[in-house]
Amino acid sequence: MQAARGTSLNSSETTTPPSARRPSPARLIGLVAGIALTAYVVDVGTKVLAVARLEPGASYPLVGDLLQLHLTRNPGAAFSTGTEYTVALTCIAITALLVVLYLSRRLGSVVWAIAFGLLLAGIAGNLTDRLFRSPGVLRGHVIDFLMLPNWPIFNVADICINAAAVLILVQAFRGVRLDGTRTTSDETPEGDA
């Protein structure tokens, strides 16, 4: 039903502009910070417990043979690659952390904010090990302690990084940009749903 001059009387026919549906930048930054801080504390706390309570080389079943605790120190990157490049990996992690912090100011989507919060926590968690654990600053070994069958040993920071990667891929496949706008097939931006 329409009133004079074509104005709709049905509230179901009115649409909210995409910019009005997006959370404020301050809320998104708060979400990034809250997720990053929470996941970072969990990562560091579990690493401290692993070092204090687990014997290196021993395995402790959590869920039978499916998930075990197994303390190891990793000087390299994922899958223990690049073990001779620990200082370079630390510098790359510092750069990645700064880039994510910079890009976080442009976020316009809750999903992107969650992904960036997890990514920040993961990078910061492993970077903390590289900066403060033995054998020394910039050369520290990352504490890994979660073990699945036929998979490299990992930690909570690694889980955060992988979860962030999945969310980033989801946003890319959905065509949602960092600022929350959506790209259609003809490259015209729309608001994020």
Rank of each mutant, 00 (worst) to 15 (best):
172 A>M: 12
86 T>I: 06
120 L>V: 08
189 P>G: 06
64 G>K: 02
30 G>M: 12
5 R>E: 12
145 F>M: 14
90 T>W: 00
97 L>V: 14
157 A>G: 06
102 Y>K: 10
27 R>T: 06
64 G>V: 01
12 S>I: 07
75 P>K: 09
148 L>C: 02
80 S>M: 00
158 D>C: 03
23 P>Y: 08
153 I>V: 15
71 L>H: 01
107 L>K: 02
187 E>K: 13
137 V>W: 15
113 A>R: 06
143 I>R: 01
153 I>D: 04
164 A>T: 01
149 P>F: 07
112 W>C: 00
64 G>W: 01
168 I>R: 09
61 P>R: 12
149 P>V: 10
113 A>N: 09
183 T>F: 06
114 I>C: 15
75 P>G: 08
103 L>A: 10
77 A>C: 07
43 D>A: 04
95 T>D: 05
52 A>K: 13
48 V>S: 11
183 T>R: 15
148 L>D: 03
33 A>F: 07
27 R>D: 05
43 D>K: 01
80 S>D: 03
101 L>Q: 08
88 A>Y: 07
170 V>N: 02
139 R>K: 13
93 A>K: 07
61 P>L: 13
82 G>D: 07
81 T>D: 04
140 G>I: 04
128 T>A: 12
91 C>N: 00
167 L>F: 08
36 A>E: 05
157 A>N: 04
179 D>H: 07
78 A>Y: 05
136 G>C: 07
84 E>Q: 10
14 T>R: 15
28 L>P: 03
156 V>C: 00
173 F>G: 04
3 A>V: 00
30 G>L: 13
176 V>M: 05
115 A>T: 03
193 A>H: 07
52 A>R: 15
174 R>K: 09
34 G>P: 08
39 A>M: 15
142 V>W: 11
66 L>R: 05
50 A>N: 11
12 S>H: 08
173 F>R: 09
159 I>G: 10
25 P>T: 06
27 R>S: 14
14 T>Y: 11
56 P>F: 12
38 T>Y: 08
42 V>D: 01
157 A>S: 12
184 T>P: 00
92 I>A: 13
76 G>T: 08
97 L>W: 14
37 L>G: 14
1 M>N: 10
152 P>Y: 00
7 T>C: 03
97 L>A: 14
141 H>S: 14
139 R>F: 05
171 Q>E: 13
169 L>I: 13
57 G>T: 14
62 L>S: 06
1 M>S: 14
126 N>T: 00
57 G>I: 11
180 G>S: 13
15 T>A: 12
36 A>K: 10
190 E>W: 05
92 I>V: 15
59 S>W: 11
100 V>N: 09
57 G>S: 14
69 L>E: 10
149 P>Q: 09
187 E>Y: 08
83 T>D: 09
189 P>T: 04
17 P>V: 07
157 A>V: 04
153 I>C: 01
176 V>H: 01
120 L>P: 02
163 A>L: 15
116 F>Y: 14
135 P>W: 09
103 L>Q: 11
136 G>F: 10
54 L>A: 11
